[in-house]
Design a protein around this nucleic acid. Structure first.
Length: 853
RNA sequence: GCGGGUGUGGCGGAAUUGGUAGACGCGCCAGACUCAAAAUCUGGUUUCCGCAAGGAAGUGGGGGUUCAAGUCCCUCCACCCGCACCA
């Protein structure tokens, strides 16, 4: 038999699927819907292995669900705005729009070469005015609904990308893209009021039971709810009280000081007349905010001389410090310190010789002897030394303290969140213009709906400092829609995460005149299975959850959670290589050396590093296009699925790809070699099967059962293993009689149909060669016959004192007595007993017999 | 520091949720075919003792529960990821 012609065959079936319109999705269907979505790519120019893994996983699910009788939506689009286009424009003198369009064209071709079951008629790109005009409308609707607002604020400024970053985009104090340390600047910014949904976003996490726990935990930490109380401490000799937030109002009688953040307005005010305090604040600022600085920084404070009056204990006055460990951007920027029950407060109190009165007694401790040493006690217990709270448990005391504060007008219960509103103004060109006009007379005026979209100007000068749109000679100049006077457009564009916060909804009705056709989104949403990288755990995945709620509030759609199921895939890594000079080498620049290991092409020693995520900087990338051109899409897809579980990081290896390629060839050969004399399609089953044929039939049906259940659980590597087993058995199967040939056809078809979602081209080709005039993609998923998946005779393990001594063949559901007798009759069992009488024999039916002596 | 995860042959990884540890693949070894090689096919491959039959040990370390533990409990270690002076 000739070898399988990968190139021709893959192209042939891609064309056939396209011409038959197999993957076109429509709401007009009686089948249940299933929306499979992979995170859409940024059009950087070429697909990378991460894409291949992502889209392979998604495609397996999409094809499988289609076969299972679902009406599947599986679309693709482009997250097309963003900074790289501007950088490329400056570097190569191409317009960002052109650069993006060319990249999209190239990557679309590469994705199509993968043979994905995508409905390409739904393709969208976020940089098209037809897309972002709807985003502008949403912005205005959000504005009207008070979900968008503008304010002056300190922002995270990326000095390399020359733009503002959201809190979520600052990693370890550095910009998420540029890696440059972020600076603080004061700017007027547009904000999305994500905090309006803090509680909802947190509570609904519980219902997302098809999301990884990891992501839910990360989001819940990011939202950071803490329930407690806001307390007003009267300050002796001052009118305004000091506002403090605490989660432990129960420990108020243990308070021994108050502390302000160095950036607290009161600290700044006091510093005006107190040079020493001013110097202390300056010293705190110099310390920096890096991890090491925080970790090693000693608790330091400066006594302002102010006295805060205890809200409960008459006449008790607490010293007020400015302290370096109090953060201005959490709570009120001020705390009361309870050293006995908070470690930081304790460290501080010990340093400055402040009292440490304990007020929570751990269970079993003697109140007269209990003392705090070097460790604060933050656990549960019973209140003491606490007046009206004495004897209460902590939760009860918290409630009592809040009630007393509220009664006395000294504070109130409050819930605080770490989550901050989402600043979306970006001082960039290649993004969605913010549809707002600034009028000297009327202030902020929304662009009237009939004037949308506000389109980006084509002629733009990039590369100067500052905001490109602001530099444009005419673009920003408009008449005020309200008063008609001269006014200016907002020259910022929106964070590109806004674009990706609703694209999944646009896919439901990509050509609708409005942002989304209500019937279409009602039908398709939520996304049943979303697949992407873990890196968006709090960014994109939180923003999209917020956006969906905001869209619901504005009447766009009717649900809150956009993604019912989420799967986070692992990264694709590759070994790293370094040459004699220590520089990184790409896999093409090294070869296997004679005595093992690697060397450069001219024979120099190469240091092999461990597998790391593929990256240009480490030069350990492998180009998927090259792999697909060499081995075909089926091989690339098969390897992606076969080695590691999809949620774990995997290593791309040449040997692995070769192995996958061999299997593709092997399946082709096995089926083709068996075609001659195979019973025709639809031949009725023989009445009897001989032993060999029956065994093969059992394997086929067991494979269907096991493969399907692995697929349902995303255990693709285990599913793959079952196909290897089936093909191994088929490879050694000698068909002699008619019943053998019939069983052989059944096995061939099982192999081909199960392989369909994973290597669709080969499967389609073999389906045809098996004599079918239908398309495999239109076939229903095979069903296992229960009578053939259960063996009549089982192998049961026999242990003596927990150690395996023999295996016995028993009929299914054999009586315990039968099993016991058979086990004891085994010579190996008798030998192990060495004459001892069994004390007890445990029989687990169909599984194991354990003889205890 | 807090939270989450991982730890099984030379390697990637299986193990029906407490019931034959190492499925399947890669690699390696041997054999067949071949003038030869590639490809392909067959067999072997946890470690140790043994020619073998067989035996012993074994899922990061230690302890425990159980007739039975990779799986449950306690404890320690290593690595990875996230958050981090959050009041």
């Amino acid at each position: 038999m000739s070898r399988y012609n990968v190139k021709e065959t893959e192209a042939k079936w891609q064309k056939a699927w396209h011409e038959a319109g197999c993957f076109a999705a429509s709401e007009a269907s009686s089948k249940p819907k299933y929306y499979v979505l992979e995170m859409f790519p940024y059009p950087s120019g070429r697909i990378h292995m991460g894409h291949v893994r992502n889209y392979t996983i998604g495609d397996v699910i999409a094809r499988y669900k289609r076969a299972r009788g679902f009406n599947v939506l599986h679309p693709m689009g482009w997250d097309a705005f963003g900074l790289p286009a501007e950088n490329a424009a400056m570097k190569r003198q191409v317009h960002p729009a052109q650069w993006t369009a060319e990249n999209i064209a190239a990557m679309r071709g590469q994705l199509q070469d993968m043979g994905l079951s995508i409905d390409w008629a739904r393709e969208i790109a976020t940089c098209q005015p037809d897309y972002y005009r709807h985003e502008q409308k949403m912005f205005l609707d959000f504005l009207a609904a008070n979900l968008v607002y503008r304010r002056e604020s300190w922002v995270n400024w990326d000095p390399v990308d020359h733009t503002v970053l959201a809190n979520e985009q600052v990693i370890d104090g550095c910009g998420w893209r540029s890696g440059a340390p972020v600076e603080k600047r004061q700017l007027a910014q547009w904000f999305f009021r994500i905090t309006a949904f803090s509680d909802q976003l947190l509570e609904s996490l519980d219902g997302l039971d098809r999301w990884p726990d990891k992501v839910r935990v990360m989001q819940s930490k990011w939202i950071g709810r803490s329930a407690g109380a806001r307390i007003d401490f009267e300050l002796a000799g001052r009118a305004a009280p000091l506002e403090v937030f605490t989660t432990r109002p129960d420990t108020l009688f243990g308070a021994s000081f108050c502390a302000l953040s160095p950036h607290h307005p009161l600290a700044a005010e006091l510093a005006k007349d107190d040079p020493a305090l001013a110097e202390f604040i300056a010293a705190c600022d110099r310390l920096g905010t890096s991890e090491e600085a925080i970790e090693t920084a000693e608790k330091q404070g400066y006594d302002t001389g102010l006295k805060a009056l205890h809200p409960f204990a008459q006449g008790q006055a607490l010293p007020v410090y400015v302290a370096n460990f109090v953060l201005m951007d959490y709570g009120t920027g001020a705390i009361f310190g309870c050293p006995a029950h908070d470690q930081r407060d304790l460290d501080f109190a010990r340093k400055y010789g402040l009292p440490v009165p304990p007020v929570v007694l751990p269970p079993g401790e003697d109140p007269d002897r209990f003392e705090i040493g070097d460790e604060a006690y933050s656990g549960d217990g019973t209140l003491f030394n606490s007046d009206f709270m004495d004897g209460m448990a902590v939760p009860q005391a918290i409630a009592a303290a809040i009630a007393r504060l509220e009664a006395g007008g000294a504070g109130r219960g409050e819930v605080l969140y770490r989550l901050r509103d989402w600043g979306v103004s970006r001082q960039r060109y290649w993004g969605c213009p913010i549809p707002v006009i600034h009028c000297p007379g009327c202030g902020i005026v929304p662009v009237p709906e009939q004037d949308l979209p506000v389109v980006l100007p084509d002629d733009i000068a990039l590369g100067q400092a500052g905001n490109p749109l602001a530099h444009h000679p005419t673009w920003k100049q408009v008449d005020c829609p309200k008063c008609g006077g001269a006014a200016e457009r907002d020259t910022d564009t929106m964070d590109t995460f806004v674009d990706s916060s609703w694209y999944f909804a646009r896919f439901c009705s990509p050509h609708a005149e409005t942002a989304m056709d209500r019937a279409a989104v009602d039908y398709w949403l939520p996304v049943d299975q979303y697949i992407g990288g873990i890196e968006h755990a709090v960014l994109h995945l939180l923003y999209s959850r917020f956006f969906t709620r905001a869209l619901k509030q504005c009447g766009y759609l009717g649900l809150e959670e956009p993604f019912a199921g989420l799967f986070t895939q692992g990264m694709v890594g590759h070994e790293t290589y370094r040459g004699p000079d220590g520089g990184w080498l790409s896999p093409e620049e090294v070869r296997r050396a004679e005595g093992g290991g690697f060397e450069t092409l001219d024979g120099q020693a190469v240091a092999v590093g461990r597998s790391e995520k593929m990256s240009k900087s480490k030069k350990n990338t492998v180009d998927p296009a090259h792999i697909i051109a060499t081995y075909g899409a089926d091989t690339a897809r098969w390897f992606m699925l076969s080695d590691s579980p999809p949620d774990r990081d995997m290593e791309w290896t040449d040997a692995g790809v070769e192995g996958a390629f061999r299997f593709v060839q092997r399946v082709w050969r096995i089926v083709n070699d068996g075609l001659d004399g195979l019973p025709a399609v639809g031949t009725p089953a023989p009445e009897r099967f001989d032993v060999a044929a029956l065994a093969l039939r059992r394997t086929s049906h067991k494979t269907v059962e096991a493969f399907t259940s692995h697929l349902e659980k995303f255990h693709f590597n285990s599913a793959v293993a079952r196909l290897y087993e089936l093909s191994n058995e088929l490879g050694g199967f000698a068909a002699e009689h008619d019943d053998d040939r019939w069983a052989q056809r059944e096995a061939f078809e099982t192999l081909v149909r199960l392989a369909g979602p994973m290597m669709p081209h080969l499967a389609e080709e073999l389906w045809q060669r098996l004599g079918h005039d239908t398309l495999l993609v239109d076939q229903p998923w095979p069903v296992a016959d229960p009578a053939l998946t259960r063996d009549d005779v089982l192998t049961v393990a026999v242990q003596v004192n927990g150690k395996l001594r023999a295996t016995i063949a028993l009929p299914r559901e054999a009586e315990d007595d039968t099993a016991r007798a058979a086990a004891l009759a085994e010579p190996a069992v008798q030998r192990a007993l060495a004459g001892k009488t069994p004390r007890k024999v445990i029989v687990v039916r169909n599984r194991i017999v354990n003889v205890v002596a």
